[in-house]
């Protein structure tokens, strides 16, 4: 797993992702770790399932890396996103950004996770005690309900 931008079915090594952006020019490495949360608005998640259009997702992650390089020169970015079945507390995504000075790596890291939720073809399916659902958009406010044919969902 030496690619800067990768989709993997294996547990993510934080250290490995961080090592990809290590640089003598860097005075800071900011790491964002996205993990599987048990409760969302009071509802218990049993586990999550992530699916990706892997080839395109890696290309889009690389595109985010290019955007970051343009916006924050001299930074280096690596992003690893896991797919498959993830348990509570598992790591879903690791973003590492190194920069000569700390401010840029903080900003770029935040930018990366927000962009992932906009343009990278990865989907999350929530599994609950009483059902399951593909989460429909990055704001987690809209979803495709399965087995509950709301008017708007009818074909």
């Amino acid at each position: 797993m030496s690619k800067l931008f990768s989709i993997t079915e294996e547990p993510i090594s934080i250290e490995q992702t961080v090592s990809l952006v290590s640089s003598p020019n860097a005075g800071a490495v900011n790491t964002f770790i996205g993990t599987v949360r048990e409760f969302t608005k009071g509802k218990r998640t049993l586990y999550l399932e992530y699916q990706a259009y892997a080839a395109m997702a890696e290309a889009k992650l690389a595109e985010i890396g290019q955007e970051i390089s343009q916006n924050w020169p001299e930074t280096k970015t690596a992003i690893t996103h896991r797919v498959g079945k993830l348990e509570i507390e598992d790591i879903a995504v690791v973003i590492a950004v190194s920069s000569p000075h700390r401010g840029d790596s903080y900003e770029a890291s935040r930018y990366a996770i927000e962009r992932i939720k906009e343009i990278v073809p990865i989907w999350k399916k929530e599994h609950w005690e009483d059902g399951e659902e593909w989460i429909g958009n990055q704001l987690e406010t809209k979803s495709y309900r399965k087995g509950t044919p709301a008017e708007e969902d009818l074909i």
Binding site: G34, Y50, A52, Y53, A55, M56, A57, A59, H81, A92, V93, I113, I116, K117, E118, I119, V120, P121, I122, W123, K124, W134, I135, G136, N137, Q138, E140, K142, Y144
Partner: peptide, 28 residues
Amino acid sequence: AINEEFAANDDVIQENDVIAFIPPVSGG
């Protein structure tokens, strides 16, 4: 997406293009 790049509704499909329908994403 056509060949792994987002496409517009009026884009025209070419021979051998790979088309993917991308529901609203929810990674991260």
